[in-house]
């Protein structure tokens, strides 16, 4: 069998999608997008979470913060982590990370909020109860549309990462914490020469 890479476009075509393709695939078709547009989009007063928590946002809008927070609230279960703090951490990180991560993640949030009709709901994601949000996210995780799975992995990864980097979770995991926080051990000296 050949060990050469297979560069035949007939074999490699399709998995790469442009943004239009991304949106179409996640939505499950233009008909679904049209249906989604009938859902109430929500306005600023529907997304008071950041202001209520006194959080100054750096990259997310009030609406996007509320969506992340709602996802975190559902995903975290009984983990010792605050949904507000997780969402605020994601907001700060996206401000520093810039594109393409920021734009991609914002796109995912918009879809998450407004494609609930595909899961049989007539309310937006943030307006669902926690159990319905969780069921909706689980549905995306196993969707036959691979980019809905991609969206789930993105949201899930951000939320859990920003939850479990917090020292408050260490008693739950049994992680003792980094050595420099607990032990004083000298580093082997290194002479770098002049440093300016």
């Amino acid at each position: 069998m050949s060990q050469q890479p297979d560069l035949d476009p007939r074999h490699t075509a399709q998995p790469w999608l442009d943004r239009r393709g991304f949106l179409r695939t996640v939505a499950g078709g233009t008909a679904a997008i049209a249906a989604v547009s009938l859902l109430p989009a929500g306005c600023a007063r529907d997304y008071p979470q950041a202001k209520s928590a006194g959080i100054e946002l750096n990259s997310l809008t009030d609406k996007e913060f509320a969506i992340v927070r709602a996802a975190a609230e559902a995903l975290l279960g009984n983990a010792p982590a605050s949904a507000d703090r997780v969402a605020a951490g994601i907001d700060r990180e996206l401000a520093l990370a810039g594109d393409p991560m920021r734009t991609d993640f914002k796109t995912v949030l918009g879809l998450l909020e407004h494609l609930t009709i595909l899961g049989g709901h007539v309310r937006r994601f943030t307006a669902l109860g926690i159990e319905d949000r969780l069921a909706y996210l689980r549905g995306w995780s196993r969707s036959r549309f691979k980019l809905r799975r991609a969206a789930f992995q993105a949201v899930k990864s951000f939320v859990f990462y920003f939850a479990y980097i917090q020292p408050e979770t260490r008693p739950l995991t049994g992680f003792a914490g980094p050595w420099p926080e607990r032990l004083k051990i000298a580093a082997t000296p290194v002479d770098f020469g002049p440093i300016a």
């Binding site: 009984n78 479990y164 049994g174």
Partner: peptide
């Protein structure tokens, strides 16, 4: 892997995810 990165690797959600995180050690 460290806890934060390990947490992102699991595909569970909600309480099921928390229960798995309890077994990290």
């Amino acid at each position: 892997q460290s806890p934060g990165i390990f947490a992102t690797m699991l595909s569970d959600t909600g309480v099921a995810h928390t229960e798995r995180m309890k077994k990290y050690h």
